[in-house]
């Protein structure tokens, strides 16, 4: 009897309200995310731009296998969820991998049923349904992950969404998750213009990133970058996740490249 009582106490801990009416596990998860690498997204008239900061790097980490990236050029923090949606994650990498796997499955299942790319909000909503489930059912902890979704669908065109561990989601013109998100958001609020174009959004994202990242260096070893636009010929969404060499070239052309002597081979 005692064992059962203990079990239900442990199992219940994740899902129950505190006497003040709060769900601490969710708040802790959000707190964990606010220390994770920054992910920043800006919605433009003709596309969406995402950038992410890679937190853990060191001379000894073997990155030779990461040069080409994963599916669609996916890296550590920016992933291709479907041909029309790019996701940027902040939080626990292991939890994020599982969510991304689910997102890709949801997108493919939609493609199978409806023979069209999944609309961005539906993908966001479906993933949030799952995140919410983990805040309510016994014995589970919430996903320690916030995501940014940059996507396109024919009805609502370019969109940028954010979702957090509670399963809440919202659409944004420009937003930021992870470390220093407050600073980044106030910078974005000052500089965002409603009719911004992708080429200016790229500059804005990189400038804000270089200001919020508290590191002396800015290069492909610390930054991931992706842009979603429409292919001018096919009129289909074109997701481009930048490869390390392309990121360095981009930073160079924007005049934001900061080198660190110690990191040089």
């Amino acid at each position: 009897m005692l064992a059962t009582a203990n079990n239900s106490l442990i199992a219940g801990r994740t899902t129950i309200f505190s006497p003040e009416g709060r769900l601490y596990q969710i708040e802790y998860a959000m707190e964990a995310i606010s220390h994770a690498g920054t992910v920043l997204g800006v919605l433009a008239k003709d596309g969406v731009v995402l950038a992410a900061e890679k937190k853990v790097t060191g001379k000894l980490l073997d990155l030779t296998g990461a040069k080409e990236g994963g599916y669609g050029g996916s890296g550590e923090k920016i992933f291709l969820l479907n041909s029309n949606v790019i996701g940027g994650v902040a939080g626990l990498t292991a939890d994020a991998n599982s969510l991304i796997n689910h997102a890709r499955t949801i997108a493919q299942r939609h493609l199978l049923t409806y023979n069209e790319d999944i609309p961005v909000e539906i993908l966001t909503e479906r993933l949030c349904d799952m995140k919410q489930g983990y805040t309510q059912f016994g014995g589970l902890r919430p996903f320690g992950v916030s995501l940014l979704y940059a996507g396109y669908d024919p009805q609502y065109e370019f969109q940028l969404y954010h979702s957090d561990p509670s399963g809440n989601y919202s659409g944004w013109k420009a937003t930021c998750i992870g470390a220093n998100n407050g600073t980044a958001q106030s910078l974005l609020k000052q500089e965002y213009k409603d009719d911004i174009e992708v080429k200016d959004a790229i500059g804005l994202v990189l400038r804000v990133m270089s200001k919020t990242m508290d590191s002396t260096t800015l290069g492909s070893e610390k930054l991931e970058f992706a842009v979603l636009t429409l292919d001018p010929e096919t009129k289909k969404p074109k997701a481009k996740i930048y490869r390390p060499s392309e990121i360095d070239a981009l930073l160079q052309s924007e005049g934001l490249k900061k080198e660190d002597e110690e990191m040089k081979p």
Partner: peptide, 17 residues
């Protein structure tokens, strides 16, 4: 549910399935 209307092509694919 989704506040999004199915395109004719998506609806037809669903009906076919």
């Amino acid at each position: 549910r989704h506040n999004y209307s199915l395109s004719p092509s998506a609806a037809a694919s669903w009906v076919r399935r």
